[in-house]
Amino acid sequence: MKYEEYIQNILKKFRRHFDIQESYSIGDYQFDFTAEFHERNEKYFASKKIVLDAAENNEYCFFKYIENVNKNHFIILTHILEEALADIVEPSFEHMSTIFTCIIISDKIANDGIISTLEKYRFNRSFLFNLKGWAKIRFVLADLTLEKIYTSKGGGQIGKVYEF
């Protein structure tokens, strides 16, 4: 499948609930697209000012097309996202979760152990014993040639979203 066709199919699924932005940069690194989802649930009483409880959930999806992807590309991306997560997440008693999902789309995947490294990758962070929520980073690798999806640990559930 061609990259253009694949990315448009995926973005179509996201448009209903996510804010989509083209060409998004973290430092010097540029992603092709990002999709952001922010949800806040509140329970209030008598007046909207009296909020009994609130919980915020956020998801950021970063899409990057790399024609010939190798292990080094993946490692650079893990460093970028782990640093960005520290800047973006604002832990508080109303913050429940923030999830980063990085979708690497490639025509050719190098045979240098990138797939096994990606499949073993796991990044979880708890803030104040989960009282201020938690954050995690997931990776999805889409092989356009074989039309196959690989996910990092804990990312198995989302693999279906990115299937061809």
Binding site: K43, D53, F93, G133
Partner: peptide, 10 residues
């Protein structure tokens, strides 16, 4: 009463 809802209440 001061614990985030997703920890226990929900």
């Amino acid at each position: 009463a001061v614990t985030p809802v997703w920890i226990l209440l929900q």
